[in-house]
């Protein structure tokens, strides 16, 4: 039983990690907290829902579309909103993204009602995977594996490609990066797009087992904040490990103390870890 709890905690951890990686990218590169990150996730889930409902396209197949869609959404958000507030003082950028999250969340509510929706006939629905006495839902396993693949892809992109290096350089020092001929505007746009693509993928994967409603993203963005801070802002590896820690904390906390306390445990873990490492686990 405990093994089961741990296994499902780790599975959720990978999904959390992917959401958090999206957040940590914009946070680390631009020092901007995107409060609308969870709403991007929610929109991706709705997109998967409608693709299925209207065109009978399974979420796992429409996934690239969601990734692309939210990539574009991220990019456009940067161009229209973030660009204007990026250099503004203090909490202004936060104000903008928070406003955006309100708009998106309530637009979803206005268009699609606050009702919970479920996709219950996808390729993976209700299938189970038994393994050494542990029974795991196939949707969760697939979502988790998919998240790991996307995480690796993002990691590869940031570490190995020209654009990825440009992102890193810009994160370190925008002015110098600019002098070196990097198009920092493009870099920021792509970073936001990439951040969106992360939740685009996560949303499609989660739509197979998680209720879809306008508030779907809210909890995830809250957890993502904690994970990002836990791992150190802008640190992809940190977000990955932070995600797993939080996934485990949630699962074990729920198991030992009752589900109503599982998020309290998550936040408590953050407070404890941050005392020992005030810059996050991997930040300096």
């Amino acid at each position: 039983m405990l093994a089961q709890v741990i296994a499902s905690g780790i599975l959720m951890g990978f999904i959390y990690a992917l959401v958090a990686i999206g957040l940590t990218l914009t946070w680390g590169v631009m020092d901007i907290i995107n409060f609308a990150h969870g709403e991007f996730l929610m929109l991706s889930m709705y997109s998967a829902f409608w693709m299925y409902t209207l065109f009978r396209t399974d979420p796992l197949l429409s996934l690239p579309l969601e990734a692309l869609l939210i990539f574009v959404l991220g990019y456009v958000t940067y161009k229209i909103v973030i660009k204007r507030v990026a250099d503004a003082p203090g909490l202004t950028a936060l104000l903008a993204t928070f406003g955006l999250s309100l708009v998106l969340r309530n637009l979803a509510q206005f268009l699609w009602t606050p009702n919970y929706r479920f996709l219950n006939q996808t390729l993976v629905t209700d299938k189970k995977l038994a393994f050494a006495g542990i029974v795991l839902g196939l949707p969760q396993v697939v979502a988790s594996v998919g998240s790991v693949i996307m995480t690796l892809a993002v990691f590869y992109f940031v570490q190995r490609t020209r654009m990825g290096r440009a992102i890193q350089a810009t994160a370190l020092d925008k002015a110098t990066a600019k002098l070196m001929g990097i198009n920092t505007e493009l870099v920021y746009g792509v970073t936001f797009g990439l951040s969106g693509a992360c939740v685009g993928v996560a949303g499609a994967l989660m739509s197979t087992f998680y209720p879809i409603h306008p508030e779907s993203g809210a909890l995830y963005s809250l957890l993502a904040f904690v994970i990002v801070a836990l791992g150190g802002f802008g640190n992809i590896k940190g977000a990955l490990q932070g995600g797993i820690i939080i996934g485990l904390a949630e699962a074990l906390g729920g198991y030992f103390l009752g589900t109503q306390f599982k998020y309290a445990i998550v936040f408590l873990i953050y407070l404890l870890v941050i005392q020992l490492r005030p810059q996050g686990l991997f930040g300096w």
């Binding site: 909103v81 204007r84 507030v85 503004a88 202004t92 950028a93 104000l95 903008a96 928070f98 406003g99 955006l100 999250s101 309100l102 708009v103 998106l104 309530n106 637009l107 206005f110």
Partner: peptide, 11 residues
């Protein structure tokens, strides 16, 4: 929605 837009505009 209106409120959110207003907030974005002010920001």
């Amino acid at each position: 929605i209106i409120f959110g837009m207003l907030v974005v505009l002010v920001a």
